[in-house]
Structures are given as structure tokens and as C-alpha cells.
Nucleic acid binder design. Structure first.
Lengths: 184, 184
DNA sequence: CTGTACGTTCAGAAAATTCTAAACGTTCCA
DNA sequence: TGGAACGTTTAGAATTTTCTGAACGTACAG
């Protein structure tokens, strides 16, 4: 591996490691493929990055799933070959939809589940001051749901190619009561 | 801890764990505080979540840094108390700027460094077909730089409250040559 | 001062993740 | 029908991350 490639592989590996989406090794694999004019065999990738074939096999599959890498066939070889994708918009869409939005919905599902648990056992619990704490929780859950629903809708619009207005998200917070210790 | 709170804490912990920004425990801490009307002491959080004080101490600091939790003082106690923030827009800005954009710049810095290494050793390396591979790399690096610069600018605009046009980012890819194996 | 109540730091324990090499299943050629 | 060339699976090793409890520093009360 030449020096520029080495620098690129290391840097992209470091960036991937902190991305929360790819592992360091996946970043390195992508970087290596991205600077190569021709597809590389699994074995070649393993050799260049000094990793076992099995480890490359498992990590490269993730890259293919994100559409960051494409599996191709090469003329006279029956080895699988891989090349980097250059359609970054597609990749970004994929990550936004399958990772980021999925995560937002996880929160929305949790809120819904919590709200259900709250109504199933209505008004029994009281706090130290004798107030029913259910009402407070319901308000907070509603605020969280409103925010995450707005972001989810915004990201959805964005990946469809529509513009994403920050105001839409900000406005939703107008309904949220301020922090307890700051109330007038 | 009552049942709704338990469900919320678990769910938010799971969501945080896959977010790439917070740890599971940080998600759980935030969830616990978010459903409480009054600030909680470090010790109370540790007890509720069945973790050591030192672990809570370290993890809650991260939450304070993201502005997800606020440290407050409470009447007749010299313990630190913590309460959840409700200004999610602020938190989102913080994460976009200090996490997401920082990550984008990491890639841009890597590209710049690689380009520098490439010009410092000009035109020596040739590929199997006898072509200089530097030109190809330069093209690829340029495409990557263009895309990440566009996204970085877009996110910057967004956190300033301006609208984020997907077209801006998409257009940048028009300049990118298609994948090697798909060329006509 | 002295002692107690805190939060933080840190070394090592515990747990989770990542990686390897061997075993396995498939495909294709002789 | 072998058997060689692959990619994948998997059990365990290696590494990294997370967590704990003790040690430490600081502030405040008596």
C-alpha cells in the first residue's frame, strides 16, 4: 500500500470509528476500495489491511448493506470482488432511513409504551407533596413525542428530496413547558 | 421506580445505546430525570439505576456537556442535584455541531492530508497497466471532498435556522464520475 | 483544627466486543 | 465423482470498554 493510501485508510478508519454507523475496519475497507480503480478480491483486502479473511468477510457485508460497497464479478476469476460506491446521496438516504429514523421511532415507540403503562394504572401514585405524578409525566412524554415526531417527519421529507425547514422543529418546542426550576 | 418509569428508562437506554452519541446508561439517566418533577441527587440516581456513584458521576458529566442535563442546587442540601433539560433544539444543535460536523471535518481533513501526500511524491507510482494512479485518486478525493463539504455547509445552515435544500447536496454528485465497472 | 459528607480519580475486575483460525458448505473443474 | 478454491460460520482468544470500590481532595460544620 502506498503512502497516500495508507494515510487515507487510517484517516477514514478513525472517522468511521467515531461515526456511530461504521466500525473502524469498515472505514478502512471502504477507503482502500475507494482509491482503487479496479475491484479487489476479499483476499486482497485482507492482505492489505492485515486482517483475517473471515473478519473482512463479516465487515464488508455491512458495507454492502449500506450500499457503500458493491460486490462484482471479475473476468477470469471466481473470487468475489468488491468496489467502492460513489453514489453518496444514496448511501446517505439509506443511513438516514434505516439508521437515524429507525432510532427516532425507537424513542417514539418507547414513549407510546410508557403512555400506555401510565393509563393502565390510572391516578394511583402520588408524589411527596401529595400530587398525582401521572399528569406531569404525561406532559413530558407529550413534549418528547412532539419533538421526535417533528424531526422524524423532517428527515423523511429531506430524504425524499424536499427541503427541511428548521422552524418546523423549533416551533414544536413552543408547547413544551420550561424546566421545573426555571418556572416563574 | 414505578412501572411506567421503568419502561421509559429501559426504552430510552436501548435507544441511546444504538444512537452512536450516548451510552445506554446515559440514556437511562436522562430518562429517569426527565420523568421527575424535581432534581435528583447523584446518590438517588445511582440507587434507582443500581449503579455505583462513580459510574453515574462520570456518565452524567457527558449528559451535562451535551446540555441534556443541568446541574442545580437544592435548598437545604449540599449535594449536587440534576434535572433533565427540555430544550431539545439546543441539544440537537450541540450534537450537530460538536459531533456530526466534527466528524465531517475529520473526513475533510483526511482528504486534504491525502492530497498533500499525493503531490509530495508526484507521478512515480504506476498501476499494472502502466498508468499513473495518482490522477484517479485525485479525482476520487475531489468527489469525496465536494460531497462532504456540501453536507457540512448544509448542516451548518440548518443549525443556524436556515432551511436545508437536499438539491444542493445532490447536485454536487453530478460531477462525480460513475463507478469503474459501469462506465460506458 | 478536626471530622464528616461529598464528588472525582484511578487501578483493577467484569463484561462486551472484535478478531482469528479451524471447520464447514458450496461451486466448479478435471 | 472427487477435490480444489472459495466464502461463511463459529468457538474461543485477544482486545477494548464499562463498571466498581477504594483512595483522594475539597468544603463545610462543629
Amino acid at each position: 500500500m502506498d503512502r497516500p493510501t495508507g494515510i487515507f485508510v487510517d484517516g477514514m478508519g478513525a472517522a468511521a470509528a467515531t461515526s456511530g454507523v461504521l466500525t473502524q475496519l469498515q472505514g478502512r475497507i471502504f477507503a482502500l476500495l475507494y482509491l482503487h480503480r479496479h475491484p479487489l478480491a476479499l483476499e486482497e483486502v485482507a492482505a492489505e489491511l492485515e486482517q483475517s479473511k473471515s473478519n473482512i468477510s463479516v465487515n464488508i457485508r455491512g458495507l454492502v448493506e449500506w450500499h457503500l460497497v458493491r460486490r462484482t464479478h471479475v473476468a477470469g476469476s471466481r473470487k468475489d470482488h468488491y468496489e467502492a460506491a460513489t453514489d453518496f446521496w444514496r448511501v446517505m438516504q439509506e443511513i438516514m432511513e434505516r439508521r437515524f429514523r429507525w432510532n427516532l421511532r425507537q424513542v417514539l415507540a418507547t414513549v407510546a409504551e410508557t403512555e400506555r403503562a401510565l393509563t393502565e394504572r390510572p391516578g394511583r401514585k402520588q408524589d411527596a407533596a401529595g400530587r398525582v405524578s401521572g399528569a406531569f409525566m404525561t406532559t413530558r412524554l407529550g413534549a418528547l413525542r412532539a419533538f421526535f415526531a417533528a424531526v422524524d417527519a423532517g428527515v423523511g421529507a429531506f430524504t425524499q428530496g424536499q427541503s427541511f425547514e428548521p422552524e418546523t422543529v423549533k416551533n414544536v418546542l413552543r408547547m413544551v413547558p420550561p424546566r421545573t426550576s426555571e418556572r416563574s
